[in-house]
Nucleic acid binder design. Structure first.
Lengths: 341, 341
DNA sequence: CTGAAAGCGCTTACAG
DNA sequence: CTGAAAGCGCTTACAG
């Protein structure tokens, strides 16, 4: 009843046992007789006692918390990833702490420093562009899993999709439809995802002698992508098929088409990367490389939980394949001439 | 150099001072001579010492952490809100811990219990539907601000938009365009936002004798809204203007229109609530009640910071007005007949 | 099955 | 301007 600061000691006193025994009941460790347990539980109930995670963490030298650092929480990809990881962690006793770094290595450093001060159990990281994270540094966070972007020279399990193959399939799809001038609007040049997707694109283009491929780098935002796409379409009217790096970039491409007065798919075919709700609403519906975000998040969560439980895990990279979802935004380039005729 | 557990004590020893003085240097509290400060800083540098937030929190009986509990992190509104609050908190020393509750009072309770165990400094809450949160309970979280949804019988500063007026303006806009059968697809019946928006809708409809208003409740998801909109359009062909509760519901309405073969705006005019990137891409571009999410988040962050600094703040509710953004999804209903003719 | 003691890393009074 | 002591709430060895 006296809510005035219930601790393990006040509970112990009321139950006529030691603090140690209360701790045992709380954590289900060791052996406690049924009678003692009942007395402790009754005292906990009577006092409205609730554990203090801070005391526990200090003693244990670690906090049951998983940090999650991403480049941009405004990108729906990361929101979905966060949700998927949180779902996987639910009930495990670990909480997820989401942090943003605006894809800035300096902010990344600062955020990780803050996280580290809590002595977390693990970290899910989508490294920022230009990240200078090292193995030694990451070790400070206990168990680490990287998602989507991988970090060079660093040995942590990675969860990714089949970047290169997925983009190669999309590029080949455009070629199969008869496009010879195709382009991909990528993200930041230094991002591993950009490099992998570019490589897949080039591989596909190179395997089709009739095709010519163009590559553009952006900051991965809608605005940046729109500008890049507008410039590209202006300078290269022969481009009739464009692949977008992510959902935001795809928005930028579609927006650029609108601005430039180019119709989709009659004038330009479009394939996005990472599905988004609006893509089925758009006319034509946007064909997309559907990234299995939920599976990726669930896998990352599981790996972390396994590591935290002391199990050794496959360092991967764990590749969860994407699927090309065909909707209405890809058509033969010849349609242009037919319609114009 | 000896990275083997640098603490305030190892630093103190190396600098030839007491732990207390190291603490003073770390926190900038009290007076420390320049020489002493330099010696401490040198020792910190040499040992690679970094503070342990857990020890600090335990002693201080509170953690420099702000919890943020929302109904659905998958809703872009909350992602934007999170980002805005994090921005406002950046550099303040407080970290933001985002938690999801799937709009379930039970999960809300569990998540808050977890948060509370960290002894946070504050909480930003979008109460779940059916939340049984009380003043007493919320007091356990130190400083609390509610955003968007308000909680009955609870006295915490609230940050909201002008729900009723905004929806009333949208409904009047439809009537002004000549619509007489108008509808609003709302969220959960129990949510304060639903009630306020419904009230605004009814007020507007009642002030126009020629207008008839229909109201539907949903779970606020795209799927739920799509089903509700399909049923509504089927049962009430006289409805030619629809207002959506949020961006997801608006997706559902647009999707329902597509499924039902009703054109926008020729057959049905649409006004959304809360802007989203796809709305300017859609043809027609979707007119929307643009909710000032960033301002709301910044304000919530500031209120929390002020409260944490011991200042008393205006309990509000703090109303940040929305703006009706006219795009292409509203047209006179007469267009229907003209086109059909 | 249970307990007394120590200590996790830090800051808060209290002295000087 | 600086320090010795105590204690935040808990769990970890160590005993019995």
């Amino acid at each position: 009843m006296s809510e005035a600061r219930a601790t393990i000691y006040t509970v112990a006193r009321a139950a006529g046992v030691s603090a140690q025994t209360v701790s045992r009941v709380l954590n289900g460790t060791g052996q406690v007789s049924a009678r003692t347990r009942a007395a402790v539980l009754a005292a906990i109930e009577a006092q409205g006692y609730r554990p203090n995670a801070v005391g526990r963490s200090l003693r244990a030298s670690r906090t049951p918390m998983i940090g999650m650092l991403v480049a941009d929480v405004g990108n729906p990809f990361y929101a979905r990833l966060h949700r998927a990881i949180e779902r996987r962690l639910a009930g495990s006793g670990y909480s997820l702490m989401l942090m943003n770094c605006d894809d800035d290595a300096r902010i990344e450093h600062r955020q990780l420093e803050l996280l580290r001060s809590y002595r977390p159990t693990g970290l899910v990281i989508v490294p920022s562009v230009g990240s200078s994270l090292t193995d030694a540094r990451l070790q400070e966070f206990g168990h680490v899993v990287s998602v989507s972007r991988v970090l060079g020279g660093v040995h942590v399990p990675a969860v990714v999709t089949d970047e290169a193959d997925a983009v190669a399939a999309a590029a080949s799809e455009l070629v199969a439809y008869g496009h010879t001038g195709i382009a991909v609007i990528l993200g930041p040049r230094e991002a591993s995802t950009t490099r992998a997707r570019e490589q897949g694109f080039r591989t596909a283009v190179d395997s089709h002698p009739q095709a010519r491929g163009l590559v553009r780098y952006t900051d991965g935002t809608r605005q940046g992508a729109q500008e890049a796409a507008e410039a590209l379409l202006r300078a290269h009217p022969e481009v009739t098929g464009v692949i977008g790096f992510n959902a935001l970039v795809t928005e930028g491409i579609v927006s650029a088409l609108l601005t430039a007065g180019r119709r989709c798919p009659e004038d330009v075919s479009v394939i996005g990367f990472t599905d988004a709700g609006w893509m089925t609403l758009h006319r034509p519906a946007i064909s997309v490389i559907d990234q299995p975000v939920e599976e990726m998040g669930a896998l990352a969560g599981r790996l972390l939980l396994d590591m935290a439980a002391g199990q050794s895990v496959d360092p991967g990279p764990h590749v969860v394949p994407s699927t090309l979802v065909r909707r209405g935004s890809v058509a033969p380039p010849s349609m242009t001439k037919e319609r114009r005729a």
